[in-house]
Design a protein around this nucleic acid. Sequence first.
DNA 1: CGAATGATACCCT
DNA 2: GGGTATCATTCGG
Length: 224
Amino acid sequence: MSATSSDLRETLREAAAAAASASRLGREFFARPTEEVARDLIGAWLFSLVDEDLSTGRIVDTEAYGGPEDRASHARAGRTRRTAPMFGPVGHAYVYLIYGMHECLNVVAYSGREAGAVLIRAIEPLTGVETMRARRDRPHDADARLCAGPARLCQAMAVDRSLDGHDLVSGDRLWLAAPPASPAGEGRIEIASGSRVGVAYAGDDWRHRPWRFWLAGHPSVSRR
DNA sequence: CGAATGATACCCT
DNA sequence: GGGTATCATTCGG
């Protein structure tokens, strides 16, 4: 890369970081009922700054998981070493390994409950798309599909268990921001909801609970 | 459709 | 302590 484009890259990075910090989501955003936070995270921006590379995406698919009462939640076994972040301060990351090979990113959020977290299932790539593509092990996907799934977005955004417990409110490697104000006439987004994915083992009332939220019709939403 | 792949939770010595 | 069933998934066939 030439010095000029490297300088431009640095400028863009600083501008994006400044803009993000101005509208960064604060602690109070996450201190609410988990399903409310899950719904409100649709449209928010996720930033990762790892190894000097900034990547940004718009959240389009989430799921809410409750505390020990939720038979579909990792917290159903109570507080364990793995799930400790779910019981800790809100606004921190909970990152775990699934199926022995994939990482998943959650944001701790709850109020009036013992624990809870929101799984980020998919984002729409916005900036740093080439960095994301280079990190993915299937680089021929369309841009919109690079982060269409909880494990895919972790791979593309360089999110792994070293970020487990990372404070997304004050941290400098991974954080969340409210979307910039949209121009008039472009503000309406349609949020759909339905049952959570991969929780057939939970009892009838829990597996059918409509705690998955997504941007209706968006191409980056993870497939059913 | 099924394999990949390993941490975890849980039950048993 | 040790064995093992289970998994908030993804990718090829």
